[in-house]
């Protein structure tokens, strides 16, 4: 009898221990507070487009440069570009030339947010503005032969225009502050104002041939990053 009682007590005790341990297991683990994203910028990256420089030194029809910069806010970047280009295009029946300055401003999102070096594969958008002039000299060859074809000289002295872009690209840290990368752009919705009715605007610095909607662009860039704060991997 005594041994039966002891056996019974042991089973109850065992069941209690089991139920206690199960209830412990079911308890949800304590949530660890996610560290907040640090949006304070850690540096500024300044660079230039090598393709524009290459075209300027290699050819005679294009002269231009572009300076690109961005500042990080966690995995978001404020990006800005300024540039200038002039073109001299020999046409089959004349010559077209233009020149002007432009800027773009926009934002990128880095999809490699956890990368400790802040290497980037990004998507973004830009809004661009351009201020330029253009001139066209040509001999119209379509007109009826009864009129002697006279050379036309027309120009737009002061035109302003704007457009929008969707961008994507890479930025890779090469060594210390040296970065390289590319930006591919789809440019769309170009618009101009201030042009003379005697000349249809043809090529807008920063955008390209206006009748091409949408148009594309590509920059191969080299940067130097001036960091004032050590990179921290961004928490997603």
């Amino acid at each position: 009898m005594h041994s039966t009682f002891r056996y019974f007590i042991s089973i109850i005790f065992l069941l209690l221990i089991c139920s206690f341990s199960f209830s412990q297991a079911k308890e949800t683990p304590k949530k660890v507070a996610k560290p907040k994203k640090d949006f304070a910028p850690t540096g500024i990256r300044v660079g230039t487009d090598l393709i524009d420089l290459g075209k300027t030194f290699a050819g005679k029809t294009f002269k231009g440069w572009e300076v690109n910069g961005d500042v990080d806010f966690a995995n978001y970047y404020l990006a800005a570009d300024i540039g200038s280009w002039s073109k001299k295009i020999v046409l089959s029946n004349g010559e077209y030339s233009n020149g002007g300055n432009y800027f773009r401003i926009g934002a990128d999102i880095n999809l490699l947010g956890k990368d400790p070096d802040k290497n980037m594969f990004f998507f973004g958008f830009r809004y661009g503005r351009s201020l330029f002039h253009e001139s066209l000299n040509y001999l119209d060859t379509t007109s009826n032969k009864i009129y002697v074809a006279a050379p036309y000289q027309v120009k737009n002295a002061n035109v302003s225009g704007g457009w929008a872009e969707l961008t994507s690209g890479l930025r890779v840290k090469i060594w210390k502050g040296l970065w390289m990368g590319y930006t591919a752009r789809i440019k769309f919705a170009p618009g101009t104002k201030g042009n003379d009715p005697s000349l249809a605007t043809y090529d807008m610095p920063g955008y390209g041939i206006i009748s091409n909607k949408p148009w594309w662009g590509f920059n191969y860039q080299v940067f130097w990053r001036f960091a004032w704060k050590k990179n921290k991997p961004v928490v997603k």
């Binding site: 295009i89 020999v90 046409l91 089959s92 029946n93 004349g94 077209y96 066209l136 040509y138 119209d140 060859t141 379509t142 007109s143 036309y152 027309v154 009715p197 005697s198 000349l199 249809a200 043809y202």
Partner: peptide
């Protein structure tokens, strides 16, 4: 009318449009 010079392409050249 207005005469407007328009570049078609580099190879096609420029032409006058009457508007």
């Amino acid at each position: 009318y207005d005469r407007q010079g328009k570049v078609i392409t580099k190879d096609c050249g420029a032409y006058t449009y009457y508007r």
